[in-house]
Write a protein that binds this DNA or RNA. Structure first.
Length: 595
RNA sequence: GGUCCGGUAGCUCAAUUGGAUAGAGCAUCAGAUUUCUAAUCUGACGGUUCGGGGUUCGAUUCCCUGCCGGAUCACCA
């Protein structure tokens, strides 16, 4: 049953009876903690219809609802706010429908498909903190769309070619003496990343030398031998030089091995991979077609441009005068390729940092101009940078928070704190390892997802390993405690069927409060998809855990004499545990049965 | 300089898209464990919502203006 819907219908009926006018848009909001009730009707906008003061309007509606609606127990009016207390019987009915619904929180499949892109790293260095936010966000949004009844295609485009990987290749050739991941016992992505840093250091010192010898800085940057080597490698790669291509393949394969290990630990997956080396030439045809259609224009030097000044933007180059393509050209081609690969998708979500907002604005505009209907449903899931207390991360200088290291630290911290609490005595290694992973990764994911994606956020290592308060482990702990109750109930042979709940007539305030939060789950799942925001789910999960903990603290379960109440509380705990588990899985976070 | 984000408690973040006396967590202080897991719960302290105007029953939210921080405006990706 949909409580909101029923309540809205009742309110509309009350308004049309009392004021003989129909009411379309009106606001029902949660009641503030300090007042009695759970639902509040804001009556100020209704005064036009009622032709009475807000207070009087609220009072009349309240009286009507109590007498006629059958769902309202009491009401109170504060200024123009009508606070409604619903009957316990209504809450019990709400709970019954939740408890009976194994798919609570999962909306039915409606046939629409959507593509969600995330991660999309360069292959010259390991993943870092920014990638963690990106991956967790993208993966979570994909889960949220699934829960909203979509079929989701998770993809990434791997930026496997270009000057960046050639830099690592150049430095490796010069300095590595044939070092491999096996020979150095180093993860492949870290090994390649190491030579990217070596490149940068070498490059800088070579530029300095040249400048010291009197060369202009700009010229020195072009003339530095190691840079010339990298550029030469890129040129040869484009000519399919077999030696360079072989090196490129080898080094990329090291990186993929490393990435796969990182993704596995992160718990993210992809349904299809795109490689830039296979797509970077796409889009040229579309651009040429666009010229014919008159959407784009050619400048005298042969370069092709789009004029976006009518849209308040600038002119943008789409093909260089030498006929080669740019980033935008590739993205046009790739977008079209994806809609060809997956003809049923209704849109694409690009999980990419907010520094590319302009790029995507332009991309979507261009696709629109080219006449692609689906361009309207493309969305840039833009997220803010993750800052460190010490300042910015610089990957070229190697001053990044490495994803692998950070995950390991989180797991270590989880282990340290768990051992300190002494709750795992007698556990085997096979049991403790997964638990530490769950807690460590849960803390990290929750920390990165609880903040509104579009906001820039601060990553304070000391605070992030907190396991108390508004954290993943707090919620995991709540789940584990509930599972303990359910284990005990099973031992006592208490299993709850729907008919056991029929005789329940009243609820404790703490039960009502927690149930009220629980009942919001599905609307939060919808809201999270509408806003592309896992933060909404994170906040919901926290609220639910908090309300349950209050209930847990105040209301005994097994010492309750009334068997009807006892059974309800067990069933209720079961539903809360289930919702917590589902909500957390929407964030990509696993919850333990004991901790 | 143009454009786009952001500025809320000491710190990190919320605020149902215009609603009530702006809420949580952390930190600080004071309490709760013969009881289903204290990674918990209860309470206290903490605010000129960056400043100034405007719109209205009502503004953290919308408009104007100024200040601060960031991103972006490449024939880079």
């Amino acid at each position: 049953m949909n409580l909101d819907q029923i309540l809205r219908t009742e309110i509309q009926r009350a308004v049309s009876t009392l004021f003989s006018q129909s009411l379309q848009d009106f606001q029902v909001q949660p009641t503030n903690q300090e007042f009695d009730g759970t639902h509040t009707l804001v009556c100020f906008p209704l005064t036009k219809i009622s032709r009475k003061s807000p207070e009087e309007t609220a009072k009349l509606l309240g009286e009507y609802l109590v007498q006629h609606s059958g769902i309202t127990e009491r009401f109170n009016v504060v200024k123009g706010f009508l606070n409604l207390e619903l009957k316990d019987s209504v809450w019990i009915e709400v709970f019954q429908s939740i408890h009976a619904n194994a798919n609570f929180g999962q909306l039915p499949f409606h046939g629409r498909e959507i593509m969600i892109e995330y991660s999309s790293p360069n292959t010259n260095k390991p993943l870092h903190l920014g990638h963690l936010r990106n991956n967790f966000l993208g993966f979570s949004v994909a889960e949220i769309f699934k829960a909203n009844g979509y079929k989701v295609h998770r993809v990434q485009i791997i930026n496997d070619r270009g000057i960046h990987i050639c830099k690592s290749m150049a430095a490796w050739r010069l300095f590595a003496n044939g070092e491999t991941p096996e020979s150095s016992n180093m993860k492949g992505d870290h090994l390649v990343g190491k030579y990217y840093v070596v490149f940068d250091k070498t490059y800088k010192s070579q530029v300095n030398d040249l400048v010291g010898k009197g060369m202009a800085e700009q010229e020195a940057e072009k003339e530095a031998p190691i840079m010339k080597l990298a550029v030469d490698m890129l040129r040869k790669w484009e000519q399919k030089d077999s030696d360079i291509v072989a090196l490129w393949r080898t080094m990329n394969s090291w990186v993929y091995d490393g990435f796969n290990a990182t993704y596995a630990r992160m718990g993210v997956e992809f349904d299809k991979l795109y490689y830039e080396s296979e797509t970077y030439l796409l889009g040229k045809e579309e651009v040429l077609k666009g010229v014919e259609k008159g959407v784009f224009f050619r400048k005298p030097d042969g370069s092709i441009w789009v004029d976006l000044t009518p849209d308040g933007l600038d002119q943008k180059v789409l093909m260089r005068s030498d006929g080669t393509s740019v980033y935008m050209t590739q993205d046009i081609g790739t977008a079209i390729l994806r809609f060809t690969d997956f003809p049923n998708i209704v849109g694409q979500v690009y999980t990419v940092g907010n520094e590319q907002e302009y790029h995507f604005k332009v991309l979507f505009l261009i696709l629109n101009k080219l006449g692609f209907e689906w361009a309207k449903s493309c969305f840039h899931l833009s997220y803010g940078m993750v800052d460190l207390p010490t300042g910015k991360m610089k990957s070229r200088e190697g001053t990044v928070v490495d994803a692998d290291e950070l995950m390991q630290e989180m797991v270590n911290e989880a282990e340290r704190q768990t051992r300190e609490l002494g709750k795992i005595e007698g556990w085997s290694e096979d049991e403790t390892r997964p638990l530490f992973e769950m807690i460590g990764l849960g803390a990290l994911k929750f920390f990165l997802l609880k903040v509104d994606p579009k906001k820039r956020m601060l990553f304070d290592p000391n605070e992030s390993i907190q396991l108390q308060g508004f954290t993943g482990p707090f919620i995991q702990y709540t789940h584990a405690r509930i599972r303990a109750i359910l284990r005990k109930a099973a031992q006592m042979k208490i299993s709850v069927a729907a008919k056991d709940l029929k005789n329940l007539t009243t609820l404790e305030p703490a039960e009502r409060d927690a149930l009220n939060v629980l009942s919001l789950f599905e609307s939060k799942v919808q809201e999270a998809a509408r806003e592309y925001s896992p933060a909404i789910i994170a906040n919901f999960a926290f609220e639910l855990a908090k309300e349950y903990n209050k209930f847990y603290q105040n209301i005994p379960i097994f010492s309750e004499d009334d068997q009807v109440k006892l059974r309800f509380r067990v069933a209720f705990s079961e539903s809360v545990a289930d919702a917590i588990k589902k909500a957390m899985s929407l964030l990509g976070i696993a919850v333990p049965d004991r901790m």
